[in-house]
Amino acid sequence: MLTPLLRVILPILLCVGLLGCWEWSVAYWSIPSFVLPPPSAILAVFISDGVSLLHSAWITLGTTLMAFVLAVISGVALAVLFASSRLAEALLSPYAVTLQVTPVVAIAPLILVWVGLDRAWLAVLILAWIVAFFPVLASATAGLKAVDPNLRDLFRLYHAGFWQTLRRLQIPSSLPYLLSGIKTAGGLALVGAVVAEFAAASGNTSGLAWRILEAGNRLQIAKMFAALLLLALMGIVIYAILSVIEWLLLHRWHGDRRNNS
């Protein structure tokens, strides 16, 4: 019923309509701009402070991506270690869980003291990594546990080595699990980076969170909105990119079963 064109146009129309209502209501009821700035004021901020906002966004994005990559590598590595050694799993998984259930905001001051206030960016990176790490570990562990035991036996029968088994069996077989964990981790890395920036709140971390705090202190609500918008945009883009990667990797293998020839 919905043609592809309408599917694109309708949401845009709705968005434009909502923005129009917003602009009109603010003017009609004379809402002060430190409560709710009109869209035009937010746009104006983008024009006047766009460069510095983008610079902050760039810093937050950098932290997010680094934390994400670290989380994927360390999460998968630890999951593989757990899968190949029961002992390692029994010894280490309590710490992983402890790290996960302790609120990151509560750990932040400690990490900050440890790495030194002059290296707040490192603290932010570590905190974002801690947040993003767990979904990768959990999904990779679940994926590795779900490997067909008969296939595992087959690999043993043909004397497959550790790396052969990892590359040809464990990774591809657990990929659907892993990718869903990675998608979650992408979003969480951003959340972690922003929360950590808040927690570390100092001029040293000039990411978007800091700009939001700063704008809030000065009652520059339009600027807050602009920064929030950038954050939301980053989150959406990260999620979209990871979804596309997931589709590219899995659609052939897991494709629609009804398409069978």
Partner: peptide
């Protein structure tokens, strides 16, 4: 095995070549 026990992500020929490639 009782089930075909194939690698779902690999084509028939890749599945069959597995023992050789592992060796």
């Amino acid at each position: 095995f009782q089930e075909p026990t194939l690698m779902a992500w690999a084509s028939a020929i890749c599945n069959v070549a597995l023992p050789l490639e592992l060796a």
